[in-house]
Structure formats: C-alpha cells, structure tokens
C-alpha cells in the first residue's frame, strides 16, 4: 500500500464503501459546562449531501454536539470545548478560523421557530445583507425568492412578503427560518429538533423539505423522534449520557443495532 495522506485514505475508504466524502469530522470532542462534563470523547463523521440524525434521550449531549459544529457554544460563557472538529479538513476551533465565516458556512435552524420581528422579506434578506452577498436589489430579490422557493414557502407567502414574519403559522415560521438559513448559501445546515414545536402536518412538510434539501446541502438534525430519524436520515448517531453509543447507516441502526442501549432506546424501553 502506498503512503497516503489521511484524507486520501478516507477518500479511498469512502469510495470502497460507496460513501460520499466526509464534510465535517469530530475527533475526541469534549464539552464542559463549568464543572460539569457534557460530552465524552465523541468521534463522529458527517458526510456530504447526507442527512445525519443525532438521537438519544434528553440531556444526552446531542444538542451540545450539534452546537459545537458551528461554535454556537461560544455564546455560553461557561462552555469549554476540547478535541477537534473539522470542516473540509480545517479545524473550526483553530484561532485562525473566523466564527462569523464558519457560521455562514454552517447554518443553523433552531428548536423553536425564531423569525425576527420583521417582514418575511427582511427575515430572508437579513443573512445576505449582513454578509454582503447581493450586489444589487434585484440580486437580493432573487436570493430571497429562490430561498423561499427552496424552503417550499414561496407560494404561500408571495403576496405578503412585506408582512411580519411573526404572523405566520408555526410550520410556516420554521420553514421561514430554514429559508433564512438557506439564503446565506451555507454548506452545512444544523437543525436542532426543528419539528418539536410543530403539529404533525407541519412536521411532514418540514421533513419533506429536509429530504429535498439533501441534494444541495449537508444536513445534521437533532431529533427526539425515532420515526423522524428513520424517515429523513441516511446515517444515525445515538448519544447517551454524553457518550456516542453507536453510529452507522440509519437502516442498520433501526433494524440491527450493535449496542444494547440503542436497541433499548429504539424499542422504547427508556428515553
């Protein structure tokens, strides 16, 4: 065997297993909140153009891990992250890496829909504006329209783009937040239980949307619903008490998990 770079090996491996390349990679990720340790040596790969679901009981660290990926934990004073997380091979916790640029590349959608108290148009245009992505008003209009279309919201709101985003229904609000994230042209989208505040019909719409978005974006989704993980994801990672218990193709995880705890969780014995 030739001497190859690490990335090269991975690429080889990926080709062999017919897997897409790795987009983000966590190695020995530890998180402390003050004295309390929330994550223990988590190693997890996120592959391009796939949906990776993070599952596990409440307080297992899945959201914590998600928030490490675009350094949202920085906003919490007492949080301390160690280990290595890479995006396209670059360490995102490297001091040279700019957190603003990182978050532009790794967008985030939150548990509760949080549209800004501005018009629908302004909500979507906010990201491109601050990042200076649009060269002209027409350009910006185009980004807003295409983002809303990609989020499947355009037809519902095209006549009231200047009305307040907070006036939409819960499901529409969440799709607006997704459109808002898409408008920045991220490479990865992180979703923190995006459907937990939505009714079943709205949830179904969002899940459909996630599946469509997979074509263009890498998606990491935290969910407490096993069915949702099974429906939308290609890979699943199971967290428990801050440890990554098991990780693999969704199909395998739900049919033939290696770990007893995964099995117990999936079959509803705890969680």
């Amino acid at each position: 065997m030739n001497i190859m770079t690490e990335a090269g090996v991975e690429q080889k491996l990926a080709q062999r297993t017919n897997e897409p390349p790795i987009k983000m990679k966590g190695e020995k990720v530890n998180v402390h909140y003050g004295e309390k340790r929330a994550l223990f040596d988590v190693d997890l790969d996120v592959r391009e153009n796939q949906v990776t679901a993070l599952i596990g009981p409440s307080g297992c660290g899945k959201s914590t891990f998600l928030r490490c990926l675009n350094r949202m934990n920085d906003t919490i004073d007492i949080a301390r992250v160690s280990g290595k997380i890479t995006l396209d091979g670059e360490d995102v916790y490297d001091p040279k890496i700019d957190v603003v640029e990182l978050r532009a590349r790794v967008g985030m959608v939150f548990q509760k829909p949080n549209p800004f108290p501005k018009s629908i148009y302004e909500n979507v245009a906010y990201g491109p504006r601050i990042h200076g992505l649009a060269k002209s008003k027409a350009d910006l209009d185009g980004i807003v329209e295409s983002s809303l279309k990609k989020a499947g919201l355009f037809n519902e709101v095209k006549d009231r783009l200047l009305e307040s985003g907070t006036g939409l229904s819960g499901g529409q609000q969440q799709r607006l937040c997704i459109a808002r994230a898409i408008a920045v042209s991220p490479e990865v989208i992180l979703m923190d239980e995006p459907c937990s505040a939505l009714d079943p019909i709205a949830t179904a719409r969002v899940e459909e949307l996630i599946d469509e978005l997979r074509e263009n974006y890498t998606i990491v989704i935290v969910t407490h619903s096993m069915q949702q993980a099974a429906r939308v994801s290609q890979r699943t990672a199971m967290f428990h008490l801050g440890y990554l218990v098991e990780e693999g193709a969704t199909e395998k995880m739900f049919t033939n998990p290696d770990d007893k705890r995964t099995q117990d969780y999936i079959t509803g014995r705890f969680g």
Partner: peptide, 25 residues
C-alpha cells in the same frame, strides 16, 4: 435569546445582531 441565537446562527457579528435584530425588536 432565541432571536440572538437565530442571528448568530446565520453568521452575524454581535454588533450586527444588536443593531439589526435586538434594537429593532
């Protein structure tokens, strides 16, 4: 806080979040 998070999650700097999201709100 969710509004600040939402803005930070889009890659806004702190001052952009304050000037364009927090203060208008």
């Amino acid at each position: 806080q969710s509004l600040r998070d939402g803005s930070a999650g889009l890659g806004a700097t702190k001052s952009e979040t304050i000037r364009k999201v927090v203060l208008p709100a």
